[in-house]
Design a protein around this nucleic acid. Sequence first.
DNA 1: GTTGCCTGAATGACGATTCATTCACAGCGC
DNA 2: GCGCTGTGAATGAATCGTCATTCAGGCAAC
Lengths: 204, 204
Amino acid sequence: MRSVRYLPAARPPVADKREAILRAATQVFARNGYFNSKVADIAHVAGVADGTVYLYFKSKEEILHSIFDRNAGEIIAEGRKLLGVLTDAREKLRRIATLHLERLGADRDLAVVFQVELRGSTKFMEEFSAAGLAEYLHLIREVFEEGQRAGMFRTDLNAKVVAKVLFGALDEMATNWILSKRRYKLAPMADQVLDIFLNGVSVR
Amino acid sequence: MRSVRYLPAARPPVADKREAILRAATQVFARNGYFNSKVADIAHVAGVADGTVYLYFKSKEEILHSIFDRNAGEIIAEGRKLLGVLTDAREKLRRIATLHLERLGADRDLAVVFQVELRGSTKFMEEFSAAGLAEYLHLIREVFEEGQRAGMFRTDLNAKVVAKVLFGALDEMATNWILSKRRYKLAPMADQVLDIFLNGVSVR
DNA sequence: GTTGCCTGAATGACGATTCATTCACAGCGC
DNA sequence: GCGCTGTGAATGAATCGTCATTCAGGCAAC
């Protein structure tokens, strides 16, 4: 409930400025690249003054981190939730993959930040890797091992490598999607990837 | 000081400087990231003056491009050479993959530049993509289609998607390798990837 | 008039690029 | 040999813009 009826534009309706800044930053970073983006641009798009940005974030870098933390956390949490609902390992992997691509496919700017901007320096990469990627790979790996125990997946495969193969394939779908001129739906690619993948790791 | 001193400036065959700068830049970019690297650092590591860099390269950006062009060209050329020697599509894919990972595994700094620095902005990404990646994906795709015609690979799969899956998996192996604290050989991972991949795309 | 959010001009650093200058050497006439 | 001079590669200090960040107030509401 944020209804301040009078003073149409004078009193900014307690709008969540932090939220506006994050959204603006995602767009600006996606369009210009992190290093070429000016804090002033972000402030302008968000409709606040340059200095206001520093009331909500310690630095430009912290903005990028916040974008990552917020979204990676949500994707992984949703992924884990799926595991409770489903029982079949194949189905779990399929749903996780679809969720992954649906998320990125729903917001192109966010996808660009995730696929490109967050990878642009070993420094970010290491944090990115330590933070979200490692956990995500672990999630996939757990499900795969579960499937191995159920006699569904080949036991001669290294689960860590398997997880990277699946993640790498999905990641490439996302990267190709944002770079492509053609507009197609990203999420459905998950099924094609899983088709090849599951066929490759399943017991015959 | 009329006497001939055999120190840094004895008789440097001019070509060596360009080479030295490229090598130095690969190291500096890999260590600090492209945007955090100062041209002065590159010059220092290369053992030349700041200004000298501009006798060989138009700009800092051109240095990054040169690193990419030189190496991407070589990898693809070698890949195509393999196609002439081998006949079996499976074997071709296996050798291409191994070549890919061997190349990156042989020079960690170069691998960092390829896996991380070149991806750090949509601008670079688009050029990178247009230049080498598209051609590389095409190479994989051709071989796959050849295998399809030979009745070796499933014909219900989209060759473009298949190529991306394989590339994505290999790419992830490389990225994980450079971020990993543990030191292992990269090239052998190609066999594990191909095991899953070929199993997934082959006719039963 | 006080509190607390906001503002945006000013500041200070930083770093890519430039360019006036140096220097080694090659050719040349003697 | 021996000066003399032209050449251009190499140098690195100075330049010039460009921002991230700061901070001295402004303004609304109570």
